[in-house]
């Protein structure tokens, strides 16, 4: 879900967000990073430096926060973000095998992105849909009662839409 616009527009948007919400103080760092990631798709070094200057915080502090929270990513993510739920409810219903199946199909490991930037595979700890376990979220769509053998079929939909 990388940003489609050019960077200048993103920076302008970020400036606007900071100005309008009065977020130009160190306390607002996490709010600002959330928005920056939303705009840029991820948080590259330049963006972190920009935010540090804007909020008047040492760059190291910004980096420290970005690397502390798993939600923030320093690498660009694929067009489709696959989140396999590894919460307890899903785990006891075989989520580990579902993850394995995605890894085999996409030939990447958990946390990685395919070379063609089509898919990022990640784990999520509980999306709160335990009754429908195992659960996989691809972008905003939730797939329920996922069987390792149905992984290929699920992925095909996205491959077809990417090809067209």
């Amino acid at each position: 879900m990388a940003c489609k616009c050019d960077n200048e527009v993103c920076y302008a948007e970020l400036d606007k967000f900071i100005a309008e919400g009065h977020y130009d103080d160190p306390d607002s760092l996490i709010q600002v990073l959330h928005h920056a990631q939303h705009l840029f798709g991820y948080l590259p070094r330049e963006v972190q430096i920009y935010v540090a200057k804007k909020l008047d915080i040492p760059i190291a502090k910004v980096y420290g926060v970005v690397t502390f929270y798993t939600f923030f990513s320093e690498t660009p993510r694929g067009e489709n973000v696959i989140q396999v739920c590894l919460g307890t409810g899903c785990f006891v219903k075989g989520a580990a095998k579902v993850m394995e199946s995605f890894e085999n199909e996409l030939k990447i490991k958990q946390g990685e992105t395919t070379e063609d930037m089509q898919f990022t595979l990640s784990a999520v700890r509980c999306v709160g849909a335990c009754a429908l376990a195992p659960v996989v979220m691809i972008n905003d769509k939730v797939y329920t009662h996922v069987d390792p053998s149905s992984v290929k079929r699920i992925l095909e939909k996205y491959l077809i839409s990417a090809a067209s």
Binding site: D27, I30, Q31, L33, H34, Y69, T70, F71, R125
Partner: peptide, 22 residues
């Protein structure tokens, strides 16, 4: 908003996070 850190459910860590820190 949290940013994906389980420890932030702990009261004091949560406060740090609201303050924009690790």
């Amino acid at each position: 908003y949290g940013a994906g850190a389980f420890v932030c459910g702990e009261e004091t860590a949560l406060m740090r996070s609201i303050e924009g820190k690790r």
